[in-house]
Design a protein around this nucleic acid. Structure first.
Lengths: 352, 352
DNA sequence: CTGTTAGCGCTTTCAA
DNA sequence: TTGAAAGCGCTAACAG
């Protein structure tokens, strides 16, 4: 197939002669200017409209002269394809998400899609975002926030493609991509066990976080298999301070542990700083601390966190692929794709 | 006119009886269902359409029953108001930007605006983003990426409101909001001078970064006023590794400095880690290192960076305010708003 | 290959 | 207050 994407270059001879005051040129203006019908102009800019090379030439010239750009609103209204993807993210500042967002944005652009972004303060008001997403007739939604069954059902009812990112699907089956928390968490715990650790503590996430709970259970489960029970647990909110706070609380209440498993990197970082500063511990000599996500700061010199890295690129790519498949064919069955994380043997844990 | 009510899963009244197969209900469907004209429905959902209370009631009821939502595309097409704001950001992963983005998103939502997000890899292909922004008839654009004169001119020509975020305006006057790099950078240097530092080094940004250059010049300028010249400078790319690399390069080539001024936090963090690890230096006893931005990680226990915090909330709020003013009145003159940063006296510098 | 003709779903005069 | 009618700018048959 020949070229698509006829982007009018800068240089811009703006609003050269739009019929009405200061408005952008329409396909009509271009048609008149090129001496063809309006539909010829439309076809000229369509992926595979049939146009004689000569006509095409003339139209493109006229278009450039007038600084014409197809109106995406009108296009979407009639064609029922907006090339808009709704992206819903619960916690933009969450350390790990900037990377996800950047990757998503990059890959969506590659596919000639635009991103309508909604970020939620407090994993609460999803409905508002969903409302907007519908009003704007997006082609599909990628959602990294918790959706209830009723909400997922709405997507199905409207035949609106949806891909969940690192979230569980509720009762309804939903298409999703996720990093395998269970295997990842088990693997990192195993590594600690192999290194001889026996006295553990866990810094978990909020009780209403599915992934957090999954990781907590996976860690505790693996420990139990090794005959280790009664592991002290503290919850945090995924933030730095809560990680530090959790470690302090653990130290105050118990003192028999030397390995701390945190369910995300940011809390691990907080815990690590607290261990060093408030208790003068040497990491990893006196205590091992591990995280999850493999986010950037985890690799910084002061931390070199032992963690599980999520394959963000492959995950975002998969999310978009699955979404587009369903845009073209809304009847595809739901599909779950689970990616394994990669163990990063950082220096925040004694592994020898 | 037989209105067949398709059976619908409880909770959601979706697509109850849209004329054609599986399509969302339109104002027409609602009108018929409520026994009024289509324009009545339109007025009912308009900010100040005149509607009799009774009619309004009936329409709203019908709308709910049909799960009706106004189509934003059609609304925008005819009313020339999309409530869409284009946001263009050059480096999403830049440590400081997640916070900016989160604030922007939050505040836009408050004002009932949606965000069309474009992130640029390599501060290059802005044109593509601009192209899209125009096609989608956004109400205005907030841009945290470099714009050339020609591009800014386009905005003016199209009377499209534009607010630059922490970027210079080129020759054309452009509305913008920024954190005052000069005063901020001077202040932090002054603080170091006051503490007795005399032997400096600077870690600057890429040569094509306006803010970076501004900060570098401000730092060197203030030093020169204090009679300190021949200050060694190394450039980084704003990333962690480049900060570390810059410090190493500086140490290798010069050894008479004990205060390093970095033009952003991330490079300062990299430099700090390198100083500790690769040279065994104690911070701040052996060397002072300062950053800029006041981003989150700067405050983490391992760093406690001395830095200049940008007032992100006030800046984003200002950006949106100025943008909206210009959406309502495109003829307002360009306006520049400069915010002072706040000095954070962290422990990464000897200040006593 | 090209032009003609319908709309997409909505806002907006304008009469009634 | 209400409804009828005219588009917004475009795509998608359908003839020619």
């Amino acid at each position: 197939m020949a070229e698509r994407k006829t982007t009018v270059p800068a240089g811009d001879p703006i609003a050269a002669a739009p019929g009405r005051a200061g408005r952008r040129a329409t396909s009509y203006d271009v048609a008149r200017h090129a001496g063809v019908s309006q539909s010829a102009v439309s076809r000229c800019f369509a992926p595979n409209g049939s146009i004689a090379p000569g006509t095409r030439e003339r139209i493109l010239k006229a278009a450039t002269e007038l600084g014409y750009r197809p109106n995406a609103l009108a296009q979407g209204l009639i064609s029922r394809r907006t090339n808009l993807v709704g992206v819903i993210i619960s916690s933009l500042t969450a350390l790990h998400y900037p990377e996800v967002l950047a990757e998503l944005s990059h890959r969506l652009t590659e596919q000639d899609l635009r991103m309508l972004l909604f970020s939620l303060d407090a994993e609460g008001n999803v409905d508002e975002a969903l409302d907007q997403v519908w009003r704007h007739s997006v082609d599909g939604v990628i959602c990294a926030a918790h959706l209830g069954d009723a909400q997922i059902e709405q997507f199905a009812a409207h035949r609106m493609p949806l891909v969940l990112y690192n979230r569980p699907g509720g009762r309804m089956p939903a298409t999703s991509v996720a990093c395998d928390s269970v295997s990842g968490q088990r693997e990192i715990v195993e590594r600690l066990l192999a290194a001889g650790h026996r006295r553990f503590a866990v810094v978990a996430g909020p009780a209403d976080s599915y992934v957090g709970e999954e990781r907590r259970r996976a860690a505790l489960g693996r420990l139990e298999e090794a005959g280790i029970t009664d592991v002290p647990v503290r919850r945090g909110d995924y933030g730095y301070a809560s990680g530090a706070g959790a470690l302090v609380a653990l130290m105050d209440a118990h003192d028999g542990f030397d390995a701390v498993v945190c369910v995300n990197d940011l809390m691990a970082i907080g815990a690590l700083d607290a261990a060093r500063e408030q208790f003068g511990l040497k990491i990893p000599e006196d205590m091992s601390i591990v995280g999850f996500d493999g986010s950037d700061p985890a690799s910084w010199g002061s931390y070199r966190l032992c963690s599980v890295r999520q394959p963000v690129r492959r995950m975002t790519q998969a999310a978009i692929d699955m979404l587009l498949e369903r845009v073209d064919n809304p009847d595809l069955p739901a599909e779950r794709r689970l990616f394994s994380g990669q163990l990063i043997e950082g220096r925040s844990a004694r592994l020898g």
